[in-house]
Amino acid sequence: MGTKEKAFFGRLLSFFPLDLDSSPRLSRAENPALADAEALLKDSLREHNLDLAGWVRLHLAEGEALRSTRSGWRLTLEGDSADRLLQVLNGLRVGAWSMLGCPEKIDDESLSERPGDVPLFAIMTLAGQFEMVLLHALNNSTSPGPEPESSEQA
């Protein structure tokens, strides 16, 4: 990525996590018996997101995953790092969408009516762009699975 892209990327990651104190539901059915389990889910997701935020700080913001090359900056992800980064980027995208009120769609008209939504919309869009690039890279790097043994029925 270029220098400007790298700056956007770093700034974007600094917003994670956006929705740390959301109240997740375990079921769509009203069930007071699930209150304890939903409290556990909330704690578990909070811990998971803080863990991811720590990983971002350690490996992406301050680490050596981003290295300078002759043409710009190269992001190198090893092990399950790509999966973690996907979770972070998607967390930013969904978190921003959630803070915008979970709209079905966002257009110029709605943004001009509520200019305060623009920063969240920018986070949602930028995170989506980086997410798509990463998904594309992952799809292209995945080795094909084993060939089917035979297309004929025994």
Binding site: R25, L26, A29, L41, H48, N90, V94, G95
Partner: peptide, 15 residues
């Protein structure tokens, strides 16, 4: 559900 919501999917468990 914990795992799927960790990935920010809308997942629930229903009887």
């Amino acid at each position: 559900v914990h795992r799927l919501q960790g990935y920010h999917l809308q997942a629930t468990m229903e009887k």
